[in-house]
């Protein structure tokens, strides 16, 4: 089980590398989006490990909130205001 968690953390570090080194703003946005989906998988593995309901609640809210955040960032990239 630990192997899976470590592999997922390696993937997350790849994303963090892209957040830090990404030459353009969209690269960082993509990396943040992917990090959000990876964390959903991480919460799923945690709930598999502990058998608790709690982590799936975190996963669902994380998936939805990360989508909203990414969409807001994408609109900001496009140069529009948020209330459009």
């Amino acid at each position: 089980m630990l192997v899976f968690i470590i592999l997922l953390l390696v993937c997350a570090f790849f994303c963090l590398y892209r957040v830090g080194a990404g030459p353009t703003p969209p690269d960082r946005t993509v990396a943040i989006d992917i990090l959000g989906i990876l964390m959903v998988g991480f919460c799923a593995i945690l709930s598999l490990y502990t058998g608790k309901d709690l982590y799936m609640n975190v996963a669902i809210s994380w998936a939805l909130l990360s989508f909203i955040g990414t969409t807001a960032l994408a609109k900001y990239l496009e140069g529009r205001t948020f209330d459009e």
Partner: peptide
């Protein structure tokens, strides 16, 4: 909850990718 999460991810992930692609191209 996992099944609901699958549905959410299938709907939101391509939409987010589409938004980023369009935003960065614009």
């Amino acid at each position: 909850k996992a099944i609901l999460c699958v549905v959410f991810i299938l709907l939101t992930s391509p939409t987010a990718a589409h938004a980023i692609a369009r935003g960065s191209h614009r």
